[in-house]
Structures are given as C-alpha cells and as structure tokens.
Design a protein around this nucleic acid. Structure first.
Lengths: 342, 342
DNA sequence: GGTCTGCGAGAGAGCGCTCTCTCAGTCTCT
DNA sequence: AGAGACTGAGAGAGCGCTCTCTCGCAGACC
C-alpha cells in the first residue's frame, strides 16, 4: 500500500493530505488564487515541493476545455510532404509561431495535411480537443483545408490569403507592393528590356507579384514586360531564363517571383556568359538563405515571415480569448534588400 | 434544456442513448473491440453518425495515461532561437518525425529549449502528461537537456550522440566514415596539398569528421592535413578559407565539415581566382539545399536526416510500447554525393 | 451579548472516458 | 433435461482536476 503510493505520481489529493488541507485549497494555491491564508499557502507550497507534485494536464483540460495547444497545419499539394519541410519558409513560420506561443506557455502541434485523410485528421484533432485552434499554412491554390476548418467552426487563422474566398482571418504580404519595389529598382538602374519569371497562375501571391511588377514597370515607362511562368523551383527558373534569353537576347533586367527561381536564372545567365548585374540585373523574392549564399548575392524582396507568423498566432489567441470577435486580416509590407545582383 | 443539449458537443452518453445501448458498448465500438454483436455495432455506428460524436481526447488521456503526442524539443545554445529554425536541418528532422508519427496517428509538439526555464518547461510538459516521450535535437556541446530528461525518468531519444556520456538512446551518423569518403574522393582526384575546415572542437560530430578525414588521408599517403576551425556558418568558412590560402597558396583540396562553410570557402576561392574543381577540389558535408544551388554544385557527404529522424521516432515508440526495453543506438552510414566541386 | 456581515476553507458534484466486474442469456455436453 | 462453460452487454467505479456551493468563524455593529 505504501509502496503503491510511493510509486504513483502524486496528485492534488496527496498534496492535500501532506499539507493537512483540502484538495480545493491546494488547487487554489496551484492556480494562484489570492484568497488563501498566507500561512496555509506556504504550507501547501512546501507540500508540493516535498511530494514532487505536478498537475495533470489531461485532468485540467477535461474540466477547463482548454488544451494549451494549437495545431500548426502545413498543407501541401497531395504527396508533397518531404519537399515541404525542406523549404526554409516552413522553418521560419514555425519559428515565429513558437516564439509567440512560448511566452503564453502554449505550444504548437505539427500536422501535415497533404491528403484528404490527413485533412480530416487535422480537423478531428482539434475537434477532439487536442488543440484549441489552428494555424493553417496553405501553400497551394484551391486548398480545401481552410473551408474545412470554417465548416467545423474551429478558430483558425491562415498564412496567406485564401485562393478562393473563405470567411477566415489571415495574414498576408503586400505582394504587389513588393513587386513594385523590384520594378523601381530595375527602372532606377536603367533597365528597359525587362522580364519576369512568375509563379503558378492559380496562386494569389504569384499573381499579385506579377501584376504589381507589370503595373509598376508601366508607371516607369516600360509598358511591355515579358512573362514566363515557373513553379517556384530552381529548375523551373532555369527553364524560364533559357526561354527568356531565346526570346530576347538583349534582356537587361529580370524579376523572379521567388529566390529559388532567381537562382536558377542566375545559373543560366552565368552559363550564357551574361554578367550579373552588369549586363542583366536580377531580383528575387523572399530573402531566403540561398539568396544570401548565391554568387553574386541576390538582391531580393524580403517578407517578414517570422513577424507575420507571430501576428497570425496573436490573432488566433485573440479569437480564442474572445469568441465571436470577428475576422481580422493583416497585410505586411515587404522590403527590398539590396545586395549584388541588382 | 433541449437547446442546451443541442449546443453541447455530443458525448458517449448521448450516443448510447441514441442507440439504446450502454456507454460501455459505444466505447467498445469506438475502440474497435471485436466482441460486439454486428447488429448492435451497426446501430451504434449509425448513432455516432447522426449525433456527430467525436471522442474527447482529454478524457481518454486521463484514463489511458497516453496522450498520443511526443515532444520534439529543439535545443540550441541559449538565445539562438531564430537562427535555429532557419536551419534546413531542423526542417528535415521535423519532416522525418512527422512522417513516421502520422502513420501511428501521433503528433509532435514543438518546443524550444534555449534557456534554463525553457528546458525545465520542456521536461514539465512531458511530466504533466502532455506528451508520452521526447525527441531531443541537441545542437550544441554540453547541453544539459538530455540529462534532465534522464533524471526525470522520461522516455527520450537523442538526435546525435551526446557530447558528455548520458544513458540515453540516440541515432547518429558515422561521421568518421563520411569524412573518409570525402578524403578518398580528394585522394582519387590526385589532391596532395589538402586542408579541412573543421567544426567547433566541443562537438563530437565535428571531431569525428576531422579525425576521420585526417586518418583516411594518412591511409592515402597524405600525412599532413592543414586544419582551421569554423563554427558551421558561411562567414566562418570564408575566414577559414582565407587563412588556408595564405598559409598554403598551393592548396589543391579542401574538405569542409558542413555545406555552409564549404559555400563560404567557394566564395573566397572564386574571389582569389581559383577555379573549382580544377585548381582546388572542394567537398562539403550534409547535402543541404544550398549545396545543390551553389555554383559549381557542391560535392558533399549526405546524411540521411529524414531516415535518421524516422528511426529516432521509431526507437522512442518502441520504448513507450515496452518500458524498460533498454537503450538503443543506431549509427547511419553517410553517402558521397558527386556533383561538380570535386 | 446577540445578530449580521464577510472572508476563507471544505465538501462534493461533475468533466467524458475506460475497464473491470457482474450477470443474463445461449450453447454444449453428459 | 440439467449443469457447466462461454459469450456479450450493462453497471459503476474511478482517472485528477476545477468550481460552485456551503458553512464555520472572526470581527463589527447596535
């Protein structure tokens, strides 16, 4: 009997017995409720120490209906799991989320939603009470995930505006403004024969960058911009640049919708003996690690990913704290990071 | 009354009432226990559908003492949080862990342990029953984290061998063998004046790569290898390479203990007009994204990070399934990825 | 001195689930 | 046909915590 008691992890009851008070009083002390006699409080505190008591999270959650966890759902096109996590983007988002949550003593649980089953599982995870809400990082167009969460009535916030209209809060970047920054830089350098390597046509972010670039270039007196679509990979950047060089050998400025495509373009330009930035100026988007490592170092449009992720988290926590608070969307401003390529 | 019932999320009790059976029977059906009459089973299944029942995770955990969650603790030197998550390494580990867990319907909760408080919080997180065990990714020497988990009696597995001996399971890479792969490649190319850019002296991985390289080179008839220490950043690679060129202008082969330092070296070699690989052959370590993007593409020693992470997870799950199973350590073999730089 | 007020501690009812124990009913064997 | 074995469903006791409600007691007031 004593042996059993010694082996079991101590409960409130054990602490109460050790301190000679009731379970309720120990609970009050543990939860920092003020209306406890100081001498009793210290007796309880001591009993907690000696017993090595630690509150049971499940029991608390059962009563409180709060898990202290949020689901961080990474949604990729089906079957793209491995590739997803290699993207430094993901790491930066995670970092921003963790940083914001930790000060609130909350933690993110990571989920991958790359199939119908996985999406359902993600929703059920929250419905079962494993998490209080969800942060959705959707990387492809027409992702059904946001709608699933809305339908289930789960508090959720999206990273990047949904491709199809969904009543959900989100954070996003001013993609058009970012592309305009790149356009102005190219124009300032005197580029007249410019092109852009755009992203997939079904992604709002890609389209924003494209139209923003075109519009800003037009404002700067360059009405025609050559456009080739890529899919955000280095290889697609290589293909696109090859095509652009064929179509316009006298090209003198290129804006790629992300850094990886820019690096692909850089390689092709180098192979064709075009010097960057002297003959062709090149600007990327994202300010990712590879941009810093490229030779020449890539001038690029930076998005404050960590900050955006932190804000996304803050919005979710607000919604959890005051249900029915209404939707919020925040659009962040990009910045041009000048390096060597333009 | 009816209104209240309609608003509440349905419980086992509700399903039981709807199906005209007992709570226990519904529980049996939900948990797939075979000894249930087929007709009753289908009645219960229908009741589950109509009520929209979903099991409450906290209630289950309270009884089962299983949360279905593991803590994935990323431990960095104090205050290094932001940098940590930008490291693609972290993403790959996460990917491997998530992939392995998901098929077991478990999920990782992410924690950052970059201060004493955070380390304690990580341990308490598991002690409270929020997670069943922990996966520790320790990136710096003398990290107290593994010992903390061992002391708390928490099932845990480490990524990379602990710098100080701790009785804990781990997965690691055969760093010496990996470095030998690089040495052999350089020797095969006929390099005679070789150097290595090593990692921090207090990291077992860094030392393994260093000694492995030296030993293999000696075997190949190159007894002297110049050594400069870096700290795994691109900048330290640049500094190291600059120093190496000063000390030995006739250098013809370099092995860097990771890709980022190799990329730093690449930049310095380029600036000094040394062609890679013709004049100087260069090999990195990790096979990270930047290695693929570098110009010339980096020949590098690849570690199967995702696979290692998956195995780490598997070991933890084994320990959870059969407590007292004893320690396991698995060492993975690296592979040389031949690209352009050597 | 008796009644009222207010403060702080205890009692006890759940939260939703699992699982053992019990028991009714059926099957099998002699 | 009766006894024993077995099968499958129900009853009910928790798991560890929170929180409302109750109640004892000390101080204040008339």
């Amino acid at each position: 009997m004593t042996e059993q008691a010694a082996r079991r992890t101590p409960t409130l009851e054990d602490v109460a017995r050790a301190a000679g008070v009731s379970r309720a009083t120990v609970s009050r002390v543990v939860n920092g409720i003020a209306t406890v006699n100081p001498s009793i409080r210290s007796a309880v505190t001591k009993a907690i120490e000696t017993t090595g008591y630690i509150p049971n999270a499940a029991a608390r959650t059962l009563v409180n209906r709060r898990s202290g966890t949020v689901a961080l759902v990474i949604s990729g096109s089906d079957g793209s799991a491995d590739q997803l996590f290699r993207d430094p983007f993901f790491g930066r988002i995670t970092g921003g989320v963790v940083q914001h949550l930790r000060s609130r003593t909350m933690h993110p649980t990571l989920m991958l939603a790359d199939s119908d089953a996985a999406r359902r599982e993600a929703v059920d995870f929250v419905r079962r009470g494993n998490a209080d809400g969800a942060l959705l990082v959707s990387t492809h167009a027409g992702d059904p995930l946001p709608q699933l969460f809305v339908d289930a009535g789960i508090p959720a916030v999206l990273f990047a505006r949904p491709a199809v209209p969904v009543p959900i809060s989100f954070v996003d970047l001013a993609h058009e403004a970012g592309a305009a920054l790149a356009a102005d830089r190219l124009a300032d350098r005197g580029c007249r024969r410019v092109a852009t390597i755009a992203g997939p046509a079904d992604l709002p972010a890609a389209n924003g960058r494209l139209s923003g670039f075109q519009r800003a270039m037009e404002r700067r007196g360059v009405p025609y911009v050559d456009v080739v679509r890529g899919n955000f990979t280095t290889e697609s950047g290589e293909r696109a640049m090859t095509e652009l060089l064929e179509r316009a050998p006298d090209i003198d400025g290129v804006f790629a919708a992300n850094d990886l495509m820019a690096i692909g373009a850089l390689r092709v330009l180098h192979e064709h003996g075009r010097s960057v930035p002297d003959e062709v100026a090149l600007i990327g988007f994202d300010d990712s690690e590879p941009a810093r490592l490229a030779r020449p170092r890539l001038t690029t449009v930076a998005q404050p990913v960590e900050e955006m992720a932190a804000r996304m988290t803050a919005i979710l926590l607000d919604q959890l704290a005051s249900p029915g608070i209404g939707l919020t969307s925040v659009v962040f401003d990009p910045e041009l990071v000048l390096r060597e390529s333009a």
